[in-house]
């Protein structure tokens, strides 16, 4: 699943517009999050279409658009070897450690 980043794999030919993923920052201080996708012939139009579609109820202050084909995904089925090994490392989490009662600011 390693697509070539950059140029959309399906180029805009024959009237077929490529797919873009849209990320919206809903307000300052928050990160952009995935809102959905849309079709557009190029990045400029994708940005404008995203503005009209995904922020028409004032849902955003900033938008990113990314060609869907440029997204490299972790693994086809999104499980097992990639993520399971992290599951048994409870010592990465603060709740793993026992601290005597009364100790503050820790």
């Amino acid at each position: 699943m390693t697509e070539q980043a950059g140029e959309p794999a399906e180029s805009a030919t024959g009237g077929q517009w490529p797919l873009w993923e849209v990320f919206v920052r809903s307000r300052r201080g928050l990160s952009h999050s995935h809102a959905g996708s849309l079709h557009a012939p190029d990045a400029q139009m994708a940005l404008r279409n995203a503005r009209d579609l995904y922020t028409r109820r004032a849902e955003g202050v900033s938008i990113w658009v990314v060609p869907s084909a440029a997204v490299t995904a972790s693994s086809p089925d999104e499980k097992d070897p990639f993520f399971e090994p992290a599951g048994d490392k409870a010592y990465r989490h603060p709740t793993f450690y026992e601290i005597p009662e009364g100790v503050k600011h820790l």
């Binding site: 030919t13 009237g15 190029d42």
Partner: peptide
Amino acid sequence: GTWVRDAAAAYAAKHR
């Protein structure tokens, strides 16, 4: 709309 979609696609290809 076909000619419009084609035009935008052609423009994108040219400018890429």
